[in-house]
């Protein structure tokens, strides 16, 4: 614990250098907006009145201590909670430009997941070849034309900066790759269907530092193609990859601002306590 805090302290100077470059961060138009979002697991309210705008083509990070609801909030965007019995949404997450309420009971969760991709904490490629993993979503959408599949798979693998490493082993099982490679195949899989928002749920917590650095670099590049929402436990990671950071605590959204602002001059005491390592 001691070591961790010290490590954070020693990182702070370089961190603020990163911040300097981003002073100019301006919010793009909204891609999605949570409005008075409440969420319950059974009788336990996990999200309380969340209001948050997700700017288009930018990276928004969700930080906060364990159990603060950041993963729960992320999973509202692609309705993953619907797979569990006894969960309830209230309020709205509006997807722009067509103003669909992602959590509305009238909205088909399958449709939602067709438009919003997700990358998980643990790399979870399917027990299939690398190619079939990336082609999975395309095939679900009825694309079976060989040339089109090959083109889009290559594009997705290039997009996740893994094409050169796997181009000669597209037909090998994806489970034979290293953890970092698997995670990038999973990112390719999500990218292949050209989602409007890509959700990352602590995507590097199961990876070593080198693989983590590659994924982080990738995420910063991805913002040109897709709107990114990332949950992370690692505050340096939030500082490195994101344009905006939202701090959550006990199911509530405490503060959201440009990442440089949050990490240098947070408005709320709770945020400051968290990012300086006083709890969490």
């Amino acid at each position: 614990m001691q070591g961790e805090i010290r490590a954070q302290g020693s990182d702070t100077p370089s961190l603020s250098i990163v911040m300097e470059d981003r002073k100019t961060t301006r919010a793009n138009p909204a891609k999605a907006a949570a409005e008075k979002l409440n969420f319950w697991y059974g009788s336990n309210q996990a999200l309380k009145n969340i209001n948050l705008v997700i700017p288009e083509h930018q990276v928004t990070a969700l930080i906060g201590p364990s159990g603060c609801g950041k993963s729960t909030f992320l999973r509202c965007f692609n309705r993953m909670h619907d797979l569990q019995a006894d969960t309830k949404y209230e309020g709205a997450i509006t997807l722009r430009p067509d103003n669909v309420n992602l959590v509305g009971p009238e909205t088909d969760p399958i449709e939602v997941r067709m438009r919003i991709g997700m990358v998980f904490q643990k790399p979870n490629p399917f027990p299939k070849s690398v190619f079939e993993n990336v082609a999975y979503g395309l095939r679900l959408r009825g694309i079976n034309n060989k040339t089109e599949l090959a083109e889009r798979v290559e594009k997705a693998l290039r997009g996740a900066a893994i094409w050169d490493e796997v181009k000669d082993r597209l037909n090998d099982s994806a489970l034979a790759l290293s953890g970092g490679q698997m995670q990038r195949v999973c990112i390719s899989r999500a990218l292949a269907t050209e989602p409007e928002i890509l959700l990352f749920d602590e995507p590097t917590s199961a990876l070593d530092p080198i693989a983590t650095a590659k994924i982080e670099e990738l995420i910063t590049e991805l913002r040109q193609r897709v709107t990114v929402l990332i949950v992370t436990h690692n505050m340096q990671q939030a500082a490195r990859v994101s344009d905006f950071t939202a701090f959550m605590y006990l199911g509530e959204l405490v503060e959201v601002d440009a990442t440089s602002k949050i990490f240098t001059n947070p408005a709320k005491k709770a945020t400051e306590d968290y990012i300086t390592g006083r709890y969490g």
Binding site: R113, M118, F120, N124, Y136, G137, L140, C186, R189, A190
Partner: peptide, 13 residues
């Protein structure tokens, strides 16, 4: 494992 199924559902399956 459950995370394998979640990966598939998340793709819209």
């Amino acid at each position: 494992p459950k995370y394998m199924r979640e990966g598939s559902y998340a793709m819209g399956a």
